[in-house]
């Protein structure tokens, strides 16, 4: 059983002073899959990954990466994992080529082999033109690609990606997603943390939802969604003043609470187990009540709704343009404060 698990963590705990950053986390990551650790800022995602990557010693609990204990066989873990994220970066003052070459040297490649390896990786990541420029002159997307290239020097069997697309524009984000899919197709196991629900949904075979240092739900995206209900109804009314009337109709028909998004025209509701049939009656009932409904959709619940159902609060805003970099700094900051 454990031979098929790339990462197996049991009861991991890490406290910073009196803050429980990670408070008993179990993870079982099947080899060759993408595993998403999803949670809001400060949930303990980064701390958990830092422990798995041997950068932090757990206060309690054990973990094995490819069968190697993260405390007792730390060097074997280090030899087989790659790491990219807010906490494992390249040197901004040096050029892209110098950074990757130095890393290749540290893994034991000879001088000329290291240079060859670096130029192959830089070419693969479309960074050849920028190879001899200092990394601080790189754009956000290039920066993330050089970080990825740096963590792939040794073709790691397990790759930890800590918020790999935070702060990227959609185009660069899609590139990173493509790279992740390709790595997995080539047999790498990827464990990624993200606060973007869409990212976990798109990439991850299994997802652990983590909040306040605890795993609060685990499973495939469809499993997580169905644990919340069989689906959900989304609609927009033509007249915002009728929203409450519409909400009352929905609650009467499907017998579950209605959520009211920020959009004053919108309503959403989970469809509880066994109530699927009733949903069909919604539109006629709304029509009878004289409520015009220009938009109506029925589908699986989004992970946002999963999160809401699990934690009782909406996750962080999902806008990749604005606050990400700052948010990221804040998360790091909060963890530092806690030390």
């Amino acid at each position: 059983m454990s031979a098929e698990l790339a990462v197996e963590a049991t009861g991991l705990v890490k406290h910073f002073k009196d803050v429980k950053a990670v408070d008993g986390v179990d993870l079982r990551v099947p080899a060759g899959s993408v595993y998403g650790v999803l949670g809001p800022n400060g949930a303990g995602k980064t701390t958990a990954v830092r422990m798995l990557a041997t950068l932090l010693r757990p206060d309690a609990g054990t973990a094995r990466v490819l069968g190697h204990d993260i405390v007792d066989d730390a060097d074997d873990v280090r030899f087989n994992v790659g790491l990219t994220g807010q906490f494992a970066s390249v040197d901004e003052d040096l050029t892209g080529a110098e950074n990757v070459t130095l890393l290749a040297r540290m893994y034991g490649f000879s001088g000329s082999e290291a240079r060859r390896r670096a130029s192959a990786l830089l070419a693969a990541f479309e960074l050849s033109d920028a190879a001899d420029k200092p990394v601080k002159s790189y754009s956000g997307g290039m920066r993330r690609r050089i970080d990825l290239a740096a963590s792939l020097v040794m073709s790691p069997k397990v790759l930890f990606l800590d918020e790999p697309t935070t702060g990227l524009d959609p185009r660069s984000r899609n590139q990173v997603w493509d790279i992740v899919r390709l790595l997995v197709a080539e047999g790498t196991t990827v464990l990624l943390t993200t606060q973007y629900l869409e990212e976990a949904d798109q990439l991850a075979d299994r997802i652990a939802v983590i909040d306040h240092g605890k795993v609060i739900a685990e499973g495939t995206a469809p499993q997580l969604k169905s644990s919340v209900g069989t689906g959900s109804v989304h609609l927009r009314v033509a007249d915002a003043r009728q929203r409450e009337d519409a909400a009352a109709v929905i609650e009467r028909v499907i017998g579950d609470e209605v959520t009211r998004p920020n959009d004053p025209y919108a309503l959403a509701a989970r469809v509880p187990q066994g109530m699927e049939e009733q949903v069909a009656h919604l539109l006629p009932r709304l029509h009878e009540a004289g409520i015009a409904v220009p938009e109506f959709s029925l589908g699986q619940p989004s992970l946002d709704e999963v999160f809401l159902a699990l934690t009782g609060k909406m996750p962080e805003p999902e806008d990749p343009e604005n606050e990400d970099w700052d948010e990221e700094q804040t998360e790091q900051h909060t963890e530092e404060e806690a030390r």
């Binding site: 040297r105 034991g108 000879s110 693969a124 792939l152 040794m154 590139q175 790279i179 390709l182 790498t188």
Partner: peptide, 30 residues
């Protein structure tokens, strides 16, 4: 910015298949 080629025989695919894992370097070399 160019699109990354992630096709079957792309440079990316080649590059992540490392042919040889070198021996760990000595303390002095590192």
């Amino acid at each position: 910015m160019t699109t990354l080629d992630i096709g079957d025989n792309s440079a990316l695919r080649q590059a992540i298949r490392v042919e040889r894992r070198p021996k760990r370097p000595s303390a002095l070399a590192t």
